[in-house]
Design a binder for these strands. Structure first.
Lengths: 199, 199
DNA sequence: ACCTGAACACCGTTCAAGT
DNA sequence: ACCTGAACACCGTTCAAGT
């Protein structure tokens, strides 16, 4: 009975992740459960544990996929622009992603591994890859600066953009006469870069 | 039997919030449940609903208290310092709070109200109060700037510091040859303020 | 009025049993 | 080998019943 042998392990993993992404996009991370996932794909709870270690593992893998699509958005935003414009495009692309794929983007930061465990290395590698994009452009912009200064600036800047995305979603930001979140982002970039390039 | 009339409603509210704070400080927001709260204070589940609308209400009230103590830390950090130093002190105090009261601080941002509902006005008012602190110092620093510019700068800056706190906790930050999170904060502030004051 | 505790509808995870 | 579905230990919330 059931779905026996209808899908390979890899196919099962794929449709489970797709179901999870759909549930999160629709109702946020809180709307995700093992039972809802298997309900959408015609399996029963036990099957999930053939493919994922547990629900946290499933969420981590889903978030990794979100990071991948975010990365491609970011790469596309850079295109062949000169560094200063590329950095602005990166920031606005990040904010745009946060505003359109809100729930899936939020899930990346809402999810916490249980007490002792930390995220898989492949996950942190993908986050590092995003910092890389910023660092590359900063290096092009200020070739004379030390790698340490560049790394520090990339983190300061990216944290700032991320913080704007977070607080912006929480409606903790747009109380300033309707100045939109994109303008806050521009303010951060313009003034930081002005200070950084002249220092 | 039980605890009948041992506490007033207000006392019950207080010990429940204290129990919740203890549980969160110890095991994070995920370690909080109605049953664990009442277990710690010698009541049964039903009693919680005499004092709180539901668990989300309890969490929101707990987070408001955390915001209050954070505010007093921030006010103390300002002391009577000149504006530029005061802004740096505010940022470092925020980061220090995030590093010491990690779980309670994280809970503020991890918690999301269910689908439709939004946070009570008293909550958003407290967040606005924190922006106020930054705006006041920025105004002292740059009296000639318009209130709109000041408000924008306060949000950009504060989002940045907050983002550093978030990513710093997730260990997504200190891969830069051991440069600590405080240094990233300084980089953000120094360069942003340099650009802002000279613009 | 205050508080209990059973009940309900959920949840994540495991694992013997079936094919 | 793959998959089920019952079982277990949790969870938030409600509400009749007790004092």
């Amino acid at each position: 009975m059931g779905r026996r042998n209808e899908h390979t392990r890899e196919e099962l993993r794929e449709i489970a992740l797709q179901a999870a992404e759909h549930l999160v996009a629709e109702h946020g991370l809180a709307g995700l459960s093992t039972r809802k996932v298997v309900g959408r794909i015609g399996y029963t709870v036990g099957s999930l544990y053939m493919v994922f270690r547990n629900l946290d593992d499933l969420i981590a893998q889903m978030n990794e996929r979100t990071l991948e699509t975010l990365q491609t958005h970011l790469r596309a935003a850079i295109a062949d622009q000169p560094p200063a414009a590329a950095i602005r495009a990166l920031a606005q692309a990040y904010i745009a992603f946060a505003l359109t794929e809100t729930h899936r983007w939020l899930a990346i930061y809402q999810h916490r591994m249980p007490e002792g465990q930390s995220l898989p290395e492949s996950f942190t590698a993908k986050v590092a890859g995003m910092f890389e994009l910023v660092q590359q452009q900063l290096t092009l912009l200020c070739p004379q600066r030390s790698p340490e200064d560049i790394a520090l600036a990339a983190r300061a800047l990216w944290s700032g953009v991320h913080g704007i995305g977070i607080l912006g979603f929480d409606q903790k930001l747009e109380m300033v006469g309707g100045r939109p979140i994109q303008e806050v982002t521009s303010s951060l970039l313009d003034h930081y870069l002005a200070g950084f390039t002249r220092a």
